[in-house]
Design a protein around this nucleic acid. Structure first.
Length: 419
DNA sequence: TCTGGGGTCCTAGGACCC
DNA sequence: TCTGGGGTCCTAGGACCC
C-alpha cells in the first residue's frame, strides 16, 4: 500500500515522444510512419509501430518491416525543451512530481484534490493542457500505487487515460500480460512463458518460491509482490546519481594499443569532466569491452583515494581494458568500449582552495597528482569560457567518435536525478 | 551479417575481519 | 586445533529501464 487513501498516484507518459515531437515540428510528417535515428531506431511513430517497427531495432530491420518508413534526424534540444515544458504543466497541479526520464513522471495529487477535483479530473486536465499548450499526446494512468499507475498508463496508450479505482487493482491486473509488469523484460517473459505463465493473474497464482526457482533467487518474491499489488514505493524527490559513465560504439575494430588509448581517453575525458562538474570523485572504475556478437566482459577496480582526474582515469581504464583483453585469444576485435565511475564520494581535493602560483597544496598527494589536478582545472576553465572544443588532452584525438551528435549524448545523459 | 548512449538494481562468490 | 556465525567490501555478470 503506497498510501491509505484512494487512487491518487498519476503516471504521465508522453506517447512515442521523439517521433511525436518530429510530427509536431514538421506537419508533413503527421500520420506517416516515421522513425527517429538511422543505424538504430530511437523512436517510432504509431504509424510505424503498426508495421512492427519499435525502438532499439536496427535500421535495416525497420526498413524491411516498413518499406515506406521515413527516417528523420533527431532534434534533441527540442526534446529537452518540450519535455521540460510538460513537466512544468505537471508542476502546476502538485509539487510532488518525480520525473523519471525525459518524457515521463509520477505525481501524487492527494494534496491537490481540494483545489482541482478528484485525481481522474486532474489527469484529464493535465492531458488537455499538454495537448493544447505543448501540442503533444500524453497518456496518464491513475492508481493507488506507482507501479499500478505505470501499468495503467501503458494500457492507456496511445493518447488515453486509465483509472484503476482503489479496490479494483487485482481485477485490473489479472488479464494483463506479464510483460507489462515493471521488471519483466524479454528474458523473464520467455522464462515465464516456458512455465505456462502469460498473464499477471497466472503469475499471482504461483507461489513465490516457485518463481524464485524459475527466475533466480529474490526475483520471484518481488515479482509476486507486483502481481498481487503489494508495492510500497512512494513518489520521491530525486536522489543523487550513483554512477556516471560514457560509452562509444566503434564498429568492428582491432583492439590495438592506439585504439584503446584514444577511445578510452575520449571517454575518460567525458566522464572525469562530468565528475568534476558535479563536484564528485569516483572510487570504483569499471571498463566494459564488447566483442562482435554482443558478448561483453567487464573489469573493475576500486581505488583510494577517489579520483576525478582525466589522465588518471584514462590510465586506469586502459589498464583494465588490457587485462580484459589479455584473457581473449588472438588479436581480438572489439565493437564497443565503455567507462563507468561509481562509488561516488566528495573529492579529497578541495576545489575551492585558492590557487596562488607556487602555493603549496597540503594533502594533495604527490606532485604528479597535483599537476593533473591543475591541468584539469585549467582545461575546465577554458572550456567553460570558450566551449568544449577549445582545448583538449593530447591523447584525446578521437574525432571520429563524434558520429553520435553531442546533443544526443547530452540528452541521454540528462539525468532527472541531479548529481 | 544483432544497434545507441545513459543509467539502476540485484546476485553470487571470495577475501577479510571479529 | 579449524569449529561457528556474522558482517563488510570487492569483483563479475546479468536483467531491466528510458
Amino acid at each position: 500500500m503506497a498510501n491509505g487513501r484512494g487512487a491518487s498516484i498519476l503516471h504521465a507518459d508522453l506517447d512515442a515522444f521523439y517521433a511525436s515531437v518530429e510530427q509536431l515540428l514538421d506537419p508533413s510528417l503527421r500520420h506517416r510512419p516515421i522513425a527517429v535515428g538511422g543505424g538504430v531506431v530511437l523512436a517510432a511513430s504509431y504509424e510505424a509501430r503498426s508495421f512492427g517497427v519499435s525502438a532499439g531495432m536496427p535500421g535495416w530491420r525497420a526498413r524491411q518491416l516498413c518499406p515506406g518508413l521515413m527516417f528523420v534526424p533527431g532534434h534533441f534540444r527540442e526534446y529537452q525543451r518540450l519535455g521540460d515544458q510538460v513537466i512544468e504543466v505537471l508542476g502546476a497541479f502538485t509539487p510532488v512530481v518525480e520525473r523519471i526520464s525525459i518524457d515521463e513522471a509520477f505525481l501524487d495529487v492527494a494534496g491537490a484534490v481540494h483545489m482541482f477535483g478528484p485525481p481522474a479530473t486532474i489527469a484529464a486536465a493535465i492531458r488537455g493542457r499538454v495537448r493544447g499548450e505543448v501540442g503533444l499526446p500524453l497518456s496518464v494512468g491513475v492508481a493507488r500505487t506507482k507501479h499500478l499507475a505505470k501499468v495503467a498508463s501503458q494500457v492507456a496508450k496511445p493518447d488515453g487515460l486509465v483509472v484503476v479505482p482503489a479496490g479494483a487493482e487485482r481485477a485490473f491486473l489479472e488479464p494483463l500480460p506479464v510483460g507489462l509488469l515493471w521488471g519483466v523484460g524479454p528474458v523473464r517473459q520467455a522464462q515465464l512463458a516456458e512455465a505456462g505463465i502469460f498473464t499477471v493473474g497466472q503469475l499471482a497464482a504461483v507461489h513465490s518460491d516457485v518463481l524464485d526457482s524459475l527466475l533466480g533467487k529474490g526475483a520471484g518474491g518481488k515479482l509476486a509482490a507486483l502481481a498481487t499489488d503489494v508495492d510500497p514505493r512512494r513518489v520521491e524527490q530525486p536522489r543523487r546519481a550513483v554512477s556516471i559513465g560514457a560509452q562509444a560504439a566503434l564498429g568492428r575494430r582491432t583492439a590495438t594499443s592506439e585504439l584503446l588509448h584514444s577511445a578510452l581517453g575520449y571517454l575518460a575525458d567525458r566522464v572525469a569532466g562530468r565528475l568534476r562538474a558535479a563536484g564528485r570523485a569516483a572510487r570504483t572504475i569499471t571498463v566494459r569491452v564488447r566483442f562482435p556478437g554482443l558478448r561483453s566482459v567487464t573489469r573493475s577496480m576500486t581505488v583510494r583515494p577517489a579520483i576525478s582526474e582525466t589522465l588518471t582515469l584514462t590510465e586506469l581504464a586502459v589498464e583494465l581494458a588490457v587485462t580484459a583483453l589479455a584473457q581473449q585469444r588472438g588479436e581480438p576485435e572489439v565493437t564497443l568500449l565503455a567507462i563507468s565511475a561509481s562509488n561516488l564520494v566528495e573529492p579529497a581535493l578541495q576545489l575551492e582552495l585558492p590557487l596562488e602560483a607556487g602555493a603549496p597544496r597540503r594533502g594533495a598527494g604527490d606532485g604528479a597528482g597535483t599537476a593533473r589536478w591543475l591541468l584539469d582545472r585549467s582545461v575546465d576553465g577554458i572550456r567553460a569560457r570558450f566551449g568544449h572544443q577549445a582545448v583538449g588532452y593530447a591523447a584525446v584525438v578521437f574525432s571520429d567518435m563524434d558520429r553520435v551528435p553531442e546533443a544526443f549524448r547530452e540528452l541521454a545523459q540528462h539525468d532527472p536525478k541531479p548529481l
